[in-house]
Structures are given as C-alpha cells and as structure tokens.
Amino acid sequence: MRHLLSTRGITRDQAVQILDVAEDMADVATREVPRLPVLRGKTVVNLFYEDSTRTRISFEAAAKRLSADVINFSAKGSSVSKGESLKDTAQTLAAMGADAVIIRHQSSGAPEVLARSGWIDAGIVNAGDGTHEHPTQALLDAFTIRRRIHGQAARGKGLEGCRVTIVGDILHSRVARSNVWLLTCLGAQVSLVAPATLMPLAIGEWPVEVDYDLDHALSAGPDVVMMLRIQAERMHDAFFPNAREYSRQWGLDDERLARLPESSMVMHPGPMNRGLEISAGAADSPRSTVREQVANGVSVRMAVLYLLLAGAMEEAA
C-alpha cells in the first residue's frame, strides 16, 4: 500500500487485511508496554488544515505506539496562515524527510493532489478531505462492527449479511461516503436516511438503499444505526427548517432507540450534538459503540501506518 486516499475502489482483500492487522495492533494495546519498534526512525507528519483534535491525537497515538517520530503541523498560526501554498508546505515536509503525511484538508481531493503531484515522495494518508472521504474513520467503523459481531473470531471475516443504516447529512459527509464504499465492499447492506435536501444528487447510482423516513428504516431492525453529526447552521441554507424539526424527523431519540432490537449497535463518528441528532440516552446506552470507536481508531490507524511504512519492507523481503 503506497497511500490511503479513499475507500472507493478498495478490494475486499485489502480491506480485510487492514482490519486483520488492526486486530494485531489492538492486541498490542493490551500489553504492559503497548508499543512496537516497527517504525523506529520513521517520521510521520500530521498536516492538519482543519481543526480536529480527535483525529489528530488518534493518529499521533498510533504513530507513537509504532515508535515513529511525530511532527504535528497545524495550519493555524503556521506558515499556511501566512499564505503558504500546499505545494510549498509539501516540499518543506519532503525536505525534512517525512516518510508519511497524514493530511486533513478542507478541500476535497487535496490528498489526491498531494499524492500525485511529485512534490513529496512520502506515503499520504487521507484524514478527511472536504466532503469527499475519511477512509480511516470508515475502517475503524468497519472494525468496530466486525468485532461486535464476531468478537475474537473476527480475523479474515467481512461484513456479509450485516445491515447498516446511516442517518443524517449524507450530502456533506465524508464519513458517509467512505463508509458506503467500504461497508458494501465488505458485504454489508447499507441504507441511507436523510431529508432529500441532504441526500447527494444521483444517489440512485450508489450501491445503497435510500429512505427518507427514519421510523420506516428502523422498523426493519438494522444491525447498525450510524448517526452523523448535523450542523445546525445548515438550516440557514434551507436544507431543513430548524433544529427542532430535524431532531423530530431524523434524530435518534430514546423512544426510537427503544424500538431497536437489543443487538443493534448505535454508532457516531463524533463529536456528537446531544439532543439534536442523538439523545443522551442513545449516546450512553450499552448499544452505543462511541467509546469503542475511539479506541479502535488507534488500532486501525496503527495498521494503516504499519502497512504504508513497513509494508514496503515486507514486499522487498
């Protein structure tokens, strides 16, 4: 694996391999010293053009557990805020000898541009680009689902037969896009629920079911309900009338939670808007995987960095 830019086009074998390596990495976390020496001497740069403390520290923890050196580069208060271009920043990082660059960027496709440009030779990991993709989030979601279903016997398995319902602002969600491609590739059936205004155009061409009615979607008893963060400001662009109406129609409240089967998982990529897209009761219920998702995020990102930076050595051997 040279880069991880998207889950679109990923093969089932590749996806299962990443998840299996992540299982190994999760085992490391249970050791007395949760650290592997495999990336010693490697330099990993967190290049974050958007604020995202959660994702950044997750990658940072992953890199450190693999003994890599980590440099955090935040656009705010840096040369970027003085007008430095992506190209110049990339060339600066290349000159410093970065082996991998984890990039979070507000523009869709920025990681792709970085990987293709020739400005820098490092492996590129997309940590969220605009409204395009967030592949490590989807990988950690798939990992979390697979573990809940298969437990210790998860290795080698996909998500065949698993029914996942993703609810919320699909249009602006890179998490939704990455999950649609990855989960369907792993064999899951994905349905999307949102008002028509927040559904991407030509959604009919995606390998998903589309439903506008959350109650209808929940009545099918999905194995996973994934709630997406909704930005209340969207109402100013007339995507929906106001937060109350959104919450009533598409929020996972206690009453809807109670109608779900006992085995259903409730997921959220965070940060949550409690009381808007998800009630406190749903967020804190035993069905909620929110905290597992955070822990699994580190394991999955360790796997990605390992495959990116140590994988080449394996291939050479």
Binding site: R8, S108, G109, D129, G130, T131, H132, E133, R174, R177, P200, L201, A202, I203, E205, W206
Partner: peptide, 16 residues
Amino acid sequence: AQMNEGALSSELGLEG
C-alpha cells in the same frame, strides 16, 4: 460550485 453537478460530483465531494 466546482464541477458539473451529478453522480460524479456527489462521489468526489465537490460542490455541484
């Protein structure tokens, strides 16, 4: 707006 609005803009996450 960034590119033609349609299935591809939806996938690429570029404003249509």
